[in-house]
Amino acid sequence: MEIQLSSLYGQDLYTDRGIYVGKIEDVSVDIREKRVSGLAVKNVNPNAFNAGKRKGVIVPYRWVTAIGDIVLIKHVRRRAAEREGEEEEEGKRER
């Protein structure tokens, strides 16, 4: 299925266990790889992600499992999610 990136803006993001994650505000694209690298999420549900004082988190696109009327991502343990900072690169997630 093909999607237009603008159709993602404002969509609700849930984990595949039905936990609300937040609202998609922006999409990060990797120009060299020619692919979507992540979803920028705001209104982050503190029960799903501990975003701390950050305004939002970037969810790596490889976590996405389904895109339809809403977007689903793999359920991740909170500890793993905490390592994803707002502008953090995927390659250096270890603290």
């Binding site: 299925m1 093909e2 999607i3 237009q4 990136l5 603008s6 694209v29 020619k34 692919r35 979507v36 690298s37 696109y61 490889r62 996405v64 895109i67």
Partner: peptide
């Protein structure tokens, strides 16, 4: 105006 991507892979397909 927009970018079209393949939903499963996230590959960018076209510029609108």
């Amino acid at each position: 105006h927009n970018i079209v991507a393949e939903a499963g892979t996230g590959m960018l397909k076209e510029l609108v």
